[in-house]
Each structure stands twice: as C-alpha cells, then as structure tokens.
Design a protein around this nucleic acid. Sequence first.
DNA 1: ACGTTGACCTATA
DNA 2: GTATAGGCCAACG
Length: 110
Amino acid sequence: MIQQNDFFIQVWEVVKLIPFGKVTSYGAIARYIGAPGAARTVGYAMNASHKSSISVPAHRVVNRNGLLTGKAHFGGPDVMQQLLESEGHCIENNAIKDFRASFWDPCKEL
DNA sequence: ACGTTGACCTATA
DNA sequence: GTATAGGCCAACG
C-alpha cells in the first residue's frame, strides 16, 4: 500500500525496486503508483532524479516499445545503452532486444 | 491561476 | 508491422 505525497518519490521508489537484469516501462510504473495515464509524468520524474541526490537506475526504465527514449538525458548519447548492455541486455537500434523477455511489471510482480 | 511542455500510451488507418 | 492522430497526467514559466 503506497500513499505518499511526492509523485517523483513514488516513481524513484519503484525504479529502485527493479531487480538486476530487468527492465520496465513508464506506463507500468505509473499504473503501479496509481496514475495509469501519467506515464509522461513518470519520465519527468526521471529527469528530476538526475538532479536529485538520490541514485535511481533510470536506465532500466524504457518506453512501451522498449526504445531507449531517454538515452539523450543521461549526459551521453550511449550511456544508457552501455549500461543496459552491462546488465546483460541486447540493444539493437536503440531498442532492447527480447524486451518482452526481460520485462518486469511492478503491478504484476509486486 | 492559465497556458505550454514533456524520457508516454492507446487507438485507428 | 508501420504511420498518423488523439488523449492522459503532473510540473514549470
């Protein structure tokens, strides 16, 4: 049961709960925190996380298409891809291969 | 308080 | 499967 005030904090909490070698989508997180249509806001929280003092594995969060949409916001054009490859994922054309296989749904797992 | 922006998602052709 | 259109919510100026 989650009922906090800060929307960003909730997103960061869920993202931090993502296990190693797993990836999820913004819509899944938004739905888990109780905002099924606030997928865009989730991405906004990721942007704030970079400025925040909290360490959030935002590279594990991608869009529904498995595309690394926010790779440009990691300070480098290939930082997110490198991180995902380091996790053991296969990136192809800025998109995660077998994304469905490594998908991790918080609402389903938690 | 209003209008715009944004690391999105779903639906239709 | 790809392309285009509309809609959703929250934060920022």
